[in-house]
Design a protein around this nucleic acid. Structure first.
Lengths: 151, 151
DNA sequence: TCTTGACCTCAAGTTAACTTGAGAGAATAT
DNA sequence: ATATTCTCTCAAGTTAACTTGAGGTCAAGA
């Protein structure tokens, strides 16, 4: 037990706070790698804890499982990721995170800005660009349009 | 027509980029105020454009319609919001935005940090707190736990 | 006058991300 | 050895946030 690197689904659940059924779902959807034990139980490497945590956090920040899967897919399942893996991974995700931060900042700025003037005026803040809104990961969402609404 | 402040659902759709059916849904769910015209059509004040835009942006940032509704509910429907309205509004939302930015930043930092070492190690970054993860708006989500995972 | 287009309602369908439940086998604790 | 706990599969149910479709109204243009 000391050197056994594999964890049961229940242990992953306890360590991450996710429900067992959710983890089962992630494993079935290939977001987390799982082997099978002799009795048929899923057995996870310790790295699964990080993956699940990563999923939970990312979800709260507005990423879908599809997007998260794409990001996680750039990482090797069980092996320690190489530097090249990481470069790809970080580059893919970092950009998107940046634009999200930017968007949140704009959103917040538009709020603060409006406290002063007392009106819900989005016109002077560079939020929201209806055209781009479809593109998520890849093209990268942008909310930089200056003046779309006159109101 | 010059001074008519009311817009049709189609006009709102064109101005915001949202689908007509979606706007109908928002109106039915009371996220956007709508009157009815003589023929039964929904008629929106110009402020609806801002509200819809706000909804679209917020959604992309990981907020549910429920959360957005709570935030928008602090604003008066048709009237120009007062300074007090705004204070409440901004305070409610700003806090949450801040913690989201914080979380995104941590997420990004943890990525950058790991490029150097070549491992997906979440252990040294203060991301993720399984216990708090349930609380969304109100108690405010926090991902500050240092060491929950040893891996 | 006709017909096109924008709007309406209401019911049902859709997708994501799970959860719940039934029924059964396996692992652990006493 | 037995009870309890954990896990399994598979099917069905759930919630959010819509979309789609059928069937109908109404106003404006050719």
């Amino acid at each position: 037990m000391k050197n056994d690197p594999l964890l049961s689904i229940g242990q992953i659940a306890k360590r991450t706070g996710a429900a067992v059924s959710a983890i089962r779902y992630y494993a079935d959807e290939q977001l987390v790698p799982a082997q099978r034990g002799p009795g048929g139980q899923r057995l996870f490497p310790r790295s699964a804890i990080r993956r699940v945590s990563f999923i939970l956090i990312s979800q709260q920040l507005g990423y879908s499982l599809q997007e998260i899967k794409q990001v996680l897919a750039t990482l090797p399942d069980g092996r320690t990721p190489t530097k090249a893996d990481w470069d790809k991974f970080a580059r893919l995700f970092s950009k998107d995170i940046d634009s999200k931060i930017e968007a949140l900042q704009s959103l917040k700025d538009s709020l603060s800005g409006c406290i002063g003037c007392g009106c819900l005026s989005l016109k002077k803040c560079k939020l929201y660009n209806p055209e781009d809104r479809i593109n998520h990961l890849g093209a990268g969402p942008r909310f930089l349009m200056g003046d779309a609404a006159e109101d």
